[in-house]
Amino acid sequence: MSILLLHEVTVSFDGFRALNSLSLDIAVGELRCIIGPNGAGKTTMMDVITGKTRADRGKVMFDQTIDVRRMTEADIAHLGIGRKFQKPTIFENLTVFENLELAMKMDKRARVSMFAWLDDSERDRVSDTLKQIRLDHQAERQAGLLSHGQKQWLEIGMLLIQDPRLLLLDEPVAGMTDDETARTGELFKSLAGKHSLVVVEHDMAFIEQLGGKVTVLHEGSVLAEGDLATVQNDARVIEVYLGR
């Protein structure tokens, strides 16, 4: 059963095809890695799924029945698609705690927020997440003051507390130490099954650690798909990506 299905999606910018008839099928609970050279269209693909960029052609189906192409970013997020950006984007002027509070799964309408108040169970959830991302001693710190790796973790934490069914992670371990990277890998593996994950990454060791199915993107379409070993031995892949 697929959680996300992309069917022949095409996106052009001023005639340049960033995505060229891209098709992709992510199963429920799957952990999928996406690799590809710079400019292959990985980020653009996430933009299309989350509503930031509109597809010119093709279908984007979530949970088999929901076509997300006409929905707003907020509505897509409500469906249960969470996203971590390539460049960490957190709310620098809010505290770590507040960042998580805003991300937490709850009624997000304006008139509700006006009167919203965290109850004890919600506070507990924030604390749990804080522990999970090892920022429990930084809860009241301004997020802007965190280190780069901590910001990455905070963003992952925001994704977790959002409790999405599908997580899109754009280069989540860029700028992390080896230790942090390994921990992140463990976390993702533990998430798979309950959630579906799509991880874009360049770090081959990390992908090996994750161990899921790998899709290679090139010039906006799928070049190869399979487990890491198969893909790494594919002649075309070696030529466009690994060979260089």
Partner: peptide, 10 residues
């Protein structure tokens, strides 16, 4: 845009 992807309608 981050706020939007968290599910808020700005």
């Amino acid at each position: 845009s981050r706020v939007m992807f968290l599910g808020y309608n700005p």
